[in-house]
Amino acid sequence: MNEDDQSPQLTEDEKKLFEDLMPEDLAEIIDAGVNRRHFLKLMTLTGGGMLAWQSAVAEQVLTRPLAPTPPVTFNPETIENGVNVALKINGAPQKVTVDSRMTLLDTLREKLDLTGSKKGCDHGQCGACTVILDGRRVLSCLTLAASCEGKSVKTIEGIAQGNQLHPVQTAFIKYDGFQCGFCTPGQICSAVALLDEAKNGDASYVTEDLRKKSGPAMLSKEEIRERMSGNICRCGAYPNIVAAIQEVHSGKAVEQNWLLV
């Protein structure tokens, strides 16, 4: 789903929808960082439903920082085995001093106020802490912050491009790819990286012919399921997660039925 820079053409219906749904404090929202086109896109993409915009919710989204707040300066002497680490987080250079035992996950959450990455198991068994490290999805709970010197970390807070939601984020909303939402940051980071892996032609255990290389892989549902199996969702949103990824991967909407009879 490539973004183009042109304003989208609106149908009359969409204009009406737009007027009806656009919050009054539009200017403020644009200033604070969600632009008109992004908002419109959300609405039109959410298909049969529509995205309701809750002002309190908006406020919360827009007032919390996307980039980490400057870290508290630590006196390395109070930290056992302190290690100074310079790394990039969501594009911004950061310097932190960490206890050598501190994981990347705890560094993000406890030192840098980036609480989007979640601790579901702390042992690499659930995927809720998935971040993208130098372009690859990894588990931040099994990554020492100390080992990240010079590396580039992308967290859920940095998945949106500026103020534009990533298509995977939009699709998760559209297809209801979550319930409680706790695994969602990890699912989304995982899915975003997965799309690149598919472009690289990477294989999985369910790939039919491993010897046939390769070029971009068009993923079946079964492939998406296997490749997303490192992200546990206890609420059971799997079918919707697969649909969301499938849409972004294929560029085609996925049928999602609920019959009322």
């Binding site: 919710v57 980036l114 989007g116 909303i173 969602t184 989304i188």
Partner: peptide, 18 residues
């Protein structure tokens, strides 16, 4: 109606506070 979750945007951006 199949309204998408109004808290969805928070959950997909990591901004929902657990």
């Amino acid at each position: 109606s199949p309204v998408s979750r109004i808290d969805g945007i928070l959950k997909v951006t990591g901004k929902a506070d657990y």
